[in-house]
Design a protein around this nucleic acid. Structure first.
Lengths: 218, 218
DNA sequence: TAGATTGTTAATCGATTAACAATC
DNA sequence: TAGATTGTTAATCGATTAACAATC
C-alpha cells in the first residue's frame, strides 16, 4: 500500500471534507448492489472531477484496478477504515437542552458505532430523568465518571458560558476528541481533536449568500 | 468605496467563512467598548495573519484609517451590513422533530433578526401544538402559506426521505434561501442559495481526525 | 490484444502571505 | 513631523486539473 505522502506535509482539509461524501455515496451504491464504479462516474455523481477523486484516494493507498475502476464494496470498506469507522466509540454528552436532546435522539450516529454512554446537565429539574436510555447526571459527577469509564468523544451542547470550562474538565479527564455545538471557539491543547458545529455562523453565511448571490464563487 | 474585485471572479469561500468570525469578535469588542483595533490585533485574536484580514476586507471596501487601524463600531456595522444583518428575515421551519424543536427554541437567531414565522410537520400528533409561539401546521398547508406570506428562508429539519420534496415545494412557492439539516445533498436551481448543516459528516471528520491526528494540516 | 481506467507527475489555477508605497 | 498601519501589488505557497505512462 504505497502512500503518496509521508506525514511531512499532511492531508489537506478539502480531502477530509470530501471523504465523508465518498463514504456516503459508496454506501448508497453498495445498498443498490452496484459492483463497480469509476472515478469519472463518482465525479459525475458528486460534482467533482475524476482527477480530484483519484488524487484524494491516493493519499491513502491504491484501491482501484487499472482499466476497470473500483470495486464498490472494497472501496467502501477502505474508506470506512480511513474514516475510523472500523471500530466503536464511547460518547458522553454534556448539556441536555433542546440541542442535546436532539443529538441524543439522533439514530444515524448510533448505527455507525457512535454510542452515547452518559449524559450530564446542571439543571436539577433534569437530574435523574432518562434521555435515550441514559440517566441524566449532574455535571459534578463528570470527573468521577471519566475516571472510571472509557470515553472517546465528548459532545458539548451546553450554553456558551460554560462550554470552555466543561471542555477543560473532559480534557483533564483524558478525553481526546470534542464535538462542540456551543457558539464559542474552544481552546484545546495539542493532541486533542475538535469538530465544531456552529449554527449561527452557518446562518450568517446563508444571509451573506442571499445578499451577494451574484458574486459568489462555486 | 473602491472594491478590489468586480463580480467577475467572485468572493472566495474562505472569505465567506471568515466574515462571521470577524463579525462575532467585533461584536465582543464593541460590547467591551473597545474603540479601535488593528488588523494585527484581529489576526492575533483569531489565529489569522494581519494580511489576510486586510485582504478579506478589501473585497468589500476600505474601512480602516492609515496609521490608526479600524474603529470597532464602524467596522462592526460595515461587516453586519456585508453579512446582510441590516434587515430582518422571515423564516419557516419544516419538520418539528427534536432538531426542529431545538432550532425553533434557539434564541441566538431571533436576536439577530431571523424570526421563525410558521412551523410545519406531517405528524398528526403535533398538529395544533405550539412551538416557540408558532402553531404547528400540517405540511399540506405549506403551499397556501407561501402564497399568502413573505418567506425569506426555509429551514428544513425533516427526515432525509422527504427533504428534497419539501425543498421543491418551498422553491415552487418562491423561497430563495434554504437552510438544510437533513442528511441529503439537496438539488436547487440557479438563484436559490443553500446552506447545509450535516451532523454526520462532521462526526465522520472528527473520527477521521482521531485516527490521523498525526498527519493533518493546520 | 485492444480498450479502458488507474495512479502519479507536471501544469495550472487560486488563495495566502510578504512587502511596501500611500497616508493618517 | 515621526510613527504606525492601511490597502494593494508581487511573490509564494498549496490545491486542483490535465495529461499520460502503466497496466489490468
Amino acid at each position: 500500500m504505497p502512500v503518496r505522502d509521508g506525514n511531512k506535509t499532511g492531508i489537506p482539509k478539502g480531502v477530509i471534507n470530501r471523504l465523508p461524501l465518498y463514504y456516503r455515496y459508496l454506501a448508497e451504491l453498495a445498498r443498490q448492489e452496484v459492483e463497480k464504479v469509476s472515478s469519472s462516474e463518482l465525479g459525475e455523481a458528486l460534482g467533482l472531477t475524476a482527477a480530484q477523486i483519484r488524487s484524494d484516494l491516493s493519499y491513502f493507498g491504491s484501491f482501484g484496478q487499472h482499466g476497470y475502476g473500483y470495486r464498490v464494496d472494497e472501496l467502501y470498506n477502505q474508506i470506512s477504515s480511513i474514516l475510523g469507522l472500523d471500530r466503536a466509540y464511547n460518547l458522553i454528552l454534556i448539556g441536555a437542552g433542546n440541542l442535546g436532546k436532539a443529538i441524543a435522539s439522533y439514530q444515524n450516529f448510533r448505527n455507525r458505532g457512535f454510542e452515547i454512554k452518559a449524559i450530564f446537565d446542571n439543571d436539577p429539574l433534569l437530574e435523574g430523568k432518562y434521555l435515550s436510555g441514559c440517566i441524566i447526571q449532574p455535571i459534578d459527577k463528570l470527573t468521577e465518571y471519566l475516571a472510571n469509564n472509557p470515553v472517546d468523544i465528548a459532545v458539548i451542547t451546553t450554553p456558551r458560558e460554560v462550554a470552555q470550562d466543561v471542555c477543560n474538565q473532559v480534557i483533564a479527564g483524558g478525553v481526546k476528541a470534542i464535538w462542540n455545538f456551543a457558539p464559542v471557539r474552544l481552546q484545546v491543547p495539542e493532541g486533542v481533536v475538535l469538530e465544531h458545529i456552529h449554527l449561527t455562523n452557518s446562518l450568517l453565511r446563508l444571509s451573506f449568500k442571499m445578499k451577494h448571490s451574484d458574486k459568489i464563487k462555486d
